[in-house]
């Protein structure tokens, strides 16, 4: 969490107050970026996996936030709204990449595998690399649920407001994702 000059975390209320005035809008937006950049980056990075792609998606997310933050009505928490935008941007990116892959001579899996290998900002061991490959094979929605639960340890209730899906459906989604990953490792003789 970003710490302000007064040594207190920047609250959503304070950020929104700054954003609502023309004079302090830019300061508020800079505070929003510094408060949420890391959390949103890691959320996006685990979705799209490659750093360059995560950088593009994160910047698009902030541009959308910049353009739309005045329409934010405060019905949900600010970070819930930010996560929703970041998630949608990530899914849109993955879907467009899948479409590009389907038009190519090489299969989507081959392109994706070579892209993951070329990512110089990943230095995990063999098991971590396999876990990343297994997650990469999950459908987009299952990938979101798995990442939010497994890496960010987000409660289902909170996830439900971000993804606008029932808690029961999210639990089922996580269960299926975990089983698929376990199956992936079993086939690779790690279990």
């Amino acid at each position: 969490m970003q710490v302000t000059a007064s040594n207190k975390p920047a609250s959503d209320d304070h950020i929104l107050k700054l954003l609502r005035s023309d004079k302090t809008f830019e300061r508020g937006f800079r505070l929003l970026i510094s408060t949420y950049k890391e959390r949103l980056y890691w959320h996006i990075r685990r979705m799209v996996m490659v750093h360059e792609d995560a950088d593009d998606v994160l910047q698009n997310t902030f541009i959308k936030v910049y353009r739309g933050v005045l329409q934010f009505e405060g019905k949900s928490k600010l970070y819930t709204w930010l996560y929703r935008i970041a998630t949608n941007e990530s899914i849109t990116f993955l879907q467009s990449r899948a479409r590009r892959g389907s038009n190519s001579i090489d299969s989507n899996d081959e392109i994706w595998a070579s892209r993951l290998k070329a990512d110089s900002w990943f230095d995990g061991d063999a098991l971590q690399q396999q876990l990343r490959d297994a997650i990469a094979q999950l459908p987009e929605k299952q990938r979101v649920v798995f990442n939010l639960r497994y890496y960010e340890e987000m409660p289902y209730e909170e996830m439900s407001t971000i993804l606008e899906t029932s808690v029961g459906a999210l639990k089922a989604s996580f269960h299926h994702a975990a089983k698929k990953i376990e199956h992936f490792f079993r086939e690779a003789d790690h279990l």
Partner: peptide, 8 residues
């Protein structure tokens, strides 16, 4: 353990 992701 760690997940292996890094940033510049």
């Amino acid at each position: 353990g760690q997940d292996g992701y890094q940033v510049p």
